[in-house]
Nucleic acid binder design. Structure first.
Lengths: 224, 224
DNA sequence: TTACATTGACTGACCAGTCAGTCATAATTG
DNA sequence: CAATTATGACTGACTGGTCAGTCAATGTAA
């Protein structure tokens, strides 16, 4: 690149005058906005049509941008798709690791996690994202790998830890459960797919199903 | 490919001899064979690549047939896909309805069903078919409808009936389960998807998981 | 020979990716 | 500060390749 000697001063000035502290020029702002629009539009299109059937022209139109602009931000359709999904997953990983909502009982903790999941994933765009990953996973091993590493294995590990605690404390009677944390997650998975595929055939009360599931694992709640 | 002049005589003879009486001409036979080859090839390609990314040229090549031949059997790519999936599902529906393997306990019946499912679906081409339906369902509502009507609703109804019996007989303690037969199926679903997506990251012992699942619902087995 | 099945070259629509040109903005100069 | 020049983000018409679907020619059974 070239000498950024005076440039930096200018920038600093602009910052001092115009904006609330971030060191961004107008151009960079606009560029970032556009990138965000493209990401949003691409997400919608890929979810609606899948990778192969999605046209970059449609993404561009939806983002209010010329097709060429897409190629200023992404190498090609394929890497755009992969980067997109990675980007969408990352913030969710934070959620998984961050809040160990230390309620009293293991059941309460599991319930809180599961509710959060149902709330924020099932029946939302994120749910469709899960379906998209299931769809395209085999053809994009990089994505399947990433998803396994960042979400599945972590999620299962967290669940396994909770189960372990539950077994030690006596809340969970079935010790083999620790070997199959997938069993804890399975109904949530089914809920996500159901909402995405069959909701209009037969609406699913995921909350009620969750309660029944928890009753199976922790024993039915004593009616207070 | 050279002149098969005598070959035809041969064939006719073969038919007269070997054929078990069905009134099929040589032509009809060949046509049926070809159709079967196309169906097989198309299934493989669609499973491997999804609808949009599958090329009819590839299907034709794999089936050992010219592309035009496909259009003698199917109207176009789309209806071919739909018909294909319908055809693949139908025989499986028979299985669902047919064998009420009247073992003694409900647990044994559920276990038999689940094992059959794991054996014949998880980790096989049929499992990939399930994944394919999940993938393309939203873009082929006709297929999602068909699948819901013929497989999902029937499967759940059958499971619900079993659960009802289990509750009445006291084998199942949780009465709410009858409202959520999906809970019975969920681990099987997860097993199918797991095999298809994550088997190479972490192999899943679906049989063991099933046992744990059944123990959760029916209570742990008394060690004999 | 007739009637039907099969073929594969061909067509036209479609679409990912390119690039020469435009123009708002940033930097420099007076 | 205004005038001038440089930059690079952005555009969209264009290209080359791909692929669903067609059909005239050819092969095969009846």
């Amino acid at each position: 690149m070239s000498k950024p000697s005076k440039l930096s001063e200018r920038r600093v000035q602009a910052v001092k005058t115009a904006d609330a502290g971030a060191a961004t020029s107008r151009r960079a702002d606009r560029s970032a906005e556009r990138r965000a629009a493209i990401v949003q539009a691409a997400m919608d299109e890929f979810i609606a049509r899948g990778f192969a059937a999605t046209r970059l022209d449609d993404i561009a139109k939806r983002a209010g941008v010329a097709k060429g602009t897409i190629y200023l931000h992404f190498k090609d359709k394929e890497s755009m798709f992969e980067e997109l999904i990675r980007t969408a997953i990352v913030p969710f990983v934070g959620r998984l690791a961050a809040p160990p909502p230390a309620g009293g009982s293991v059941r309460d903790m599991v319930e809180a996690l599961a509710r959060m999941f149902l709330q924020e994933v099932a029946g939302t765009r994120r749910g469709d994202l899960v379906r998209l990953i299931i769809s395209e996973g085999p053809r994009f091993p990089a994505i399947a790998d990433f998803y396994y590493r960042e979400v599945v294995s972590r999620g299962l590990a967290a669940m396994r830890a909770l189960i372990q605690i539950g077994i030690v404390s006596g809340e969970i009677r079935e010790p083999k459960l620790v070997q199959h944390p997938q069993l804890m997650i399975a109904p949530m998975m089914v809920a996500v797919l159901w909402k995405s595929l069959f909701e209009r055939h037969a609406p699913l009360d995921a909350e009620a199903m969750l309660q029944t599931h928890l009753d199976l694992i922790f024993g039915a709640r004593r009616p207070t």
